[in-house]
Design a protein around this nucleic acid. Structure first.
Lengths: 186, 186
DNA sequence: TAGTGTAGAGAACGTTCGTTCTCGTGCCAA
DNA sequence: TTGGCACGAGAACGAACGTTCTCTACACTA
């Protein structure tokens, strides 16, 4: 087995297990079994659990945002529909099996005070999301794109945590309605 | 020392330590030292760490909501100011030293998949918040109070997580502005 | 005063976990 | 063929943690 393939198998297993059950609830041994690599190999790819955790979060960040952007690009026709398409995507995500909230908020709650790396990745993820939404809003002629984007991101984060806690995907619909109101009042 | 006082000293220490550093990062031994009670006493009050965690969350829920309600009752004159006062309170909370986000979201991220009790307390906290905001909104004549309250709660949760991740209390101001827009458009 | 129960301090126990070490096996170059 | 090398499997190690046990001191009662 290639080193590169081992690495991606470990990251796949990490993403599945860490996201499902929390980071501290998953041991390196279980991870090794799930990934189907040897412990030696695992530590060759990631010299410590901390580095694996950060790599997991970074890869998830990239994939999450690219999936979101892809959906919005595909499903939104007019520029003014694009921010709302974001909330449609949220709904499909919330309703997907295994949804358990935002990996970054969860990790931050679990390890934020202990690990600067985790706190940093989580913060960067939210900043990148804000930048993306600002981009979406910039097309519409609005006085303060970053401000409006900030408000929309609040709705996004609120919807994610509400859906995670209650298990009800309808939080996305609620957020979409609120977002439409904010956009109409701009 | 009274049993009742031991209990409250343990809960005080638990609230401080669990909230600051996460639940799994704090051991029973450190808790005992911080509370100034013996290990035997600690286990007399709370037969297991799980029960202590749930008691901590329940007490924090009660206090958090009563402090919020007290602030709103004091600082809001007209009924239509009351939902906005909520966001003013958030700002003072975010700016307070030691703010580290929502204890329930954090605990849910850390222990939600493992402990049904924690997941339940977190869910109940959010439901109670929603009920309270619905009450606030009910005074204004609006078609769907629960729906509008749901949207406002999204802003609340979004603001809390954003403030926690970025460390910037301004998220409360942003949320307040958005809330005002939603209220004006009702 | 002798006896009894209770509490505090902390040692001890069993488990889990991150990380490292050992051993046996197969592969490749000289 | 042979010597070394890399790898997989899993044992081993040291630390941390939740929980229980032991020992000592002291208060209270008959």
């Amino acid at each position: 087995m290639d080193q590169e393939e081992a690495r991606s198998r470990v990251l796949d297993a990490a993403e599945r297990l860490f996201y499902d059950r929390g980071i501290q609830a998953v041991g390196m041994d279980e991870l090794r079994t799930a990934a189907g690599v040897s412990l030696k190999r695992l530590y060759q790819c990631f010299p410590s659990k901390n580095e694996l955790v950060e790599a997991y979060l970074q890869r998830r960040d990239a994939r999450w945002r690219s999936e979101l952007a892809e959906y919005v690009a595909e499903h939104a026709g007019a520029p003014e529909d694009r921010p709302l398409a974001l909330f449609d995507w949220l709904h499909t995500w919330f309703a997907a099996p295994g949804f358990r909230g935002c990996a970054f908020i969860n990790s931050f709650g679990e390890l934020g005070p202990t690990s600067d790396g985790v706190a940093c990745v989580a913060r960067d993820h939210k900043l990148a999301l804000h930048a993306y939404v600002t981009e979406l809003v910039q097309g519409l002629k609005v006085g303060d794109p970053a401000g409006l984007a900030g408000q929309l991101v609040l709705l996004v984060d609120g919807a994610i945590t509400t859906a995670a806690l209650t298990g009800d995907p309808e939080a996305a619909r609620n957020a979409r309605t609120a977002a439409a109101t904010l956009l109409a009042a701009r």
